[in-house]
Nucleic acid binder design. Structure first.
Length: 473
RNA sequence: GGCGGUAUAGCCAAGUGGUAAGGCAGAGGUCUGCAAAACCUUCAUCGUCGGUUCGAAUCCGAUUACCGCCUCCA
């Protein structure tokens, strides 16, 4: 039975989808004014891994994740680059797709953009105004937070405590237009030269929170299963989404709220953010780090735990991933001399490992225990690969299971291409030298190949080689 | 000030009452002509103090440190 930690109740709850066999989930995507940073990647990887686990369990997942393609940061970025907001959006949405593809993050079922839903956003706001939850003020429209009874239920904040909160980002003019400091903007009137759309309240653009309420309900219905995002979005973003959506529909917005933990950078263990100057983009990291290593590193940390982005941890992940790849290679190599038949005992052990894997993952996606089962399977694969006689069906079964399990983490094994004629000729020559006990020549060949990044391995079934992955980190 | 998180071996990390999973790194060994890979063995009493209990990393109280949210933020 799958359990998830619901921020709303601060408890692990049994996951029951609205429609049996289907998971409808919405995950807040990035504002596309720059390359995504590792924090964005963490969120995308965490929820992609969750999605993959649902799919592994046989669910059909409708996964919607937005692009915020208009807001203050977009306007600023466009101005600085001396271009338009849509041009900036297009550029960095492309970059997002490139980066997330490299990290083997499945594309969302739907990637809606705020600016493609202006009509729906305006209608949504009009509805809130009509219901008395929103009011116009000098071209802006604000939400009456205090009118929504459940305000604060997600972040467990008392609305009266918010007023005395240390809000360092208030816009004095905006505060003056609000009836109450806790109100938030649904629609912002345009200043001169800003991108804008016509509305009943004049030229303007949507506030940040409203787009997610509109797009999630548009594609997934008034009530859907899972809403995800970074921990920092709990308040105010998700709190506001609930207030907007539930005020409009009168229905529960999302049944389960999942929030991923942060990435911290460096030894000071601080949250990564632009203002702290420890901002790292995926685009830059992937210049020197194998995307599979970064993916493995992040997807094998449970989504709620913080991740320390350090060279040591990355190296650890690389070693672990290499270990799994090697186990896969070792067993794949035996496919060619495997005999017909199967080994029921081995297959029974594999089923047990897989059952343990499911038990672990069912507990709020406990990937640390899940990956421990994968290591166990890798060990079994290695031990089996060393047997003098192996059976084809069992070898294939181990390989299939191993492949399926690492796929949950977004890992795809590299297939060895073992048919390089030049290398094979040298291996043959070395084999002959070894048979002649000419080890000097034999070692010379091995060193020569090593210098080219080719590592030889002598096995009872013959000599294998693989490319040395070291240095790709 | 309000709310929340974390603290387990050199590193990452599991574990919510029954006597410390797993991985990396290290050490020793098996295999090998030597290697590589793999496998085997080995490596902690759980931030601090106090309490409950036959028994606590796990429950309670206190305390320390670090981190996050409180309308930019994944």
């Amino acid at each position: 039975m799958l359990k998830v930690f619901n921020t709303l109740t601060r408890q692990k709850e049994v996951f029951t989808p609205i429609t049996s066999g289907i998971v409808n989930m919405y995950v807040c995507g990035p504002t596309v004014y720059n390359y995504i940073h590792i924090g964005n990647a963490r969120s995308a990887i965490a929820f992609d891994t969750i999605r993959r686990y649902f799919e592994y369990k046989g669910y059909h997942v409708n996964y919607v994740s937005n692009f915020t393609d208009v807001d203050d940061k977009m306007i600023k970025a466009a101005k600085e680059a001396n271009t338009t907001v849509p041009a900036i959006a297009d550029r960095f949405i492309d970059a997002f797709m490139t980066d997330t593809t490299a990290l083997n993050i499945e594309p969302a079922t739907k990637h809606p953009r705020a600016t493609e839903n202006i009509k729906e956003i305006i209608a949504f706001i009009q509805d809130l105004v009509a219901k008395g939850y929103a009011y116009e003020a000098e071209g802006d429209v604000y939400y009456r937070a205090r009118k929504f009874e459940g305000y604060g239920k997600l972040s467990h904040q008392n609305i009266d405590d918010l007023e005395v909160g240390a809000s360092q980002h208030v816009d004095a003019e905006e505060v003056n237009r609000k009836e109450d400091p806790v109100d938030f903007a649904l629609w912002k009137g345009a200043k001169a030269d800003e991108i804008s759309w016509p509305s009943p309240w004049g030229e303007g653009r949507p506030g940040w929170h409203i787009e997610c309420s509109v797009m999630s309900t548009k594609y997934l219905g008034d009530t859907f299963d899972i809403h995800g995002g970074g921990q920092d979005l709990t308040f105010p973003h998700h709190e506001n989404e609930i207030a907007q959506s539930e005020a409009k529909t009168g229905q529960t917005f999302a049944n389960y709220w999942l929030h991923n933990g942060f990435v911290t950078v460096g030894d000071d263990n601080e949250k990564m953010s632009k203002s702290l100057g420890n901002f790292v983009t995926v685009h830059d990291i992937l210049k020197t780090v194998d995307p599979q290593v970064l993916r493995f590193f992040m997807s094998t940390t449970q989504y709620r735990r913080p991740i320390q982005y350090t060279q040591d941890n990355l190296t650890d992940a690389q070693n672990n991933l290499k270990h799994l790849q090697t186990a896969y290679n070792n067993l794949t190599y035996r496919l060619k001399d495997a005999e017909a038949g199967s080994d029921p005992k081995i297959e029974q052990e594999i089923r047990q490992i897989e059952a343990d894997f499911v038990d672990s993952m069912d507990d709020d996606f406990n990937v640390q225990n899940g990956i421990a089962q994968v290591y166990e399977l890798a060990k079994l694969a290695n031990v089996y690969a060393e047997r003098p006689v192996v059976f084809k069906t069992s070898v294939a079964f181990i390989l299939k299971t191993l492949t399926e399990l690492v796929n949950v983490f977004g890992i795809v094994f590299k297939e060895e291409s073992l048919n390089d004629e030049g290398i094979q000729a040298l291996i043959d020559e070395r084999l002959k030298a070894r048979q002649d006990r000419n080890f000097e020549r034999s070692d010379e060949i091995r060193e020569q190949l090593k210098a080219q990044g080719i590592i030889l391995e002598d096995t009872p079934q013959g000599t294998r080689w693989h490319r040395d992955e070291k240095g790709t980190l």
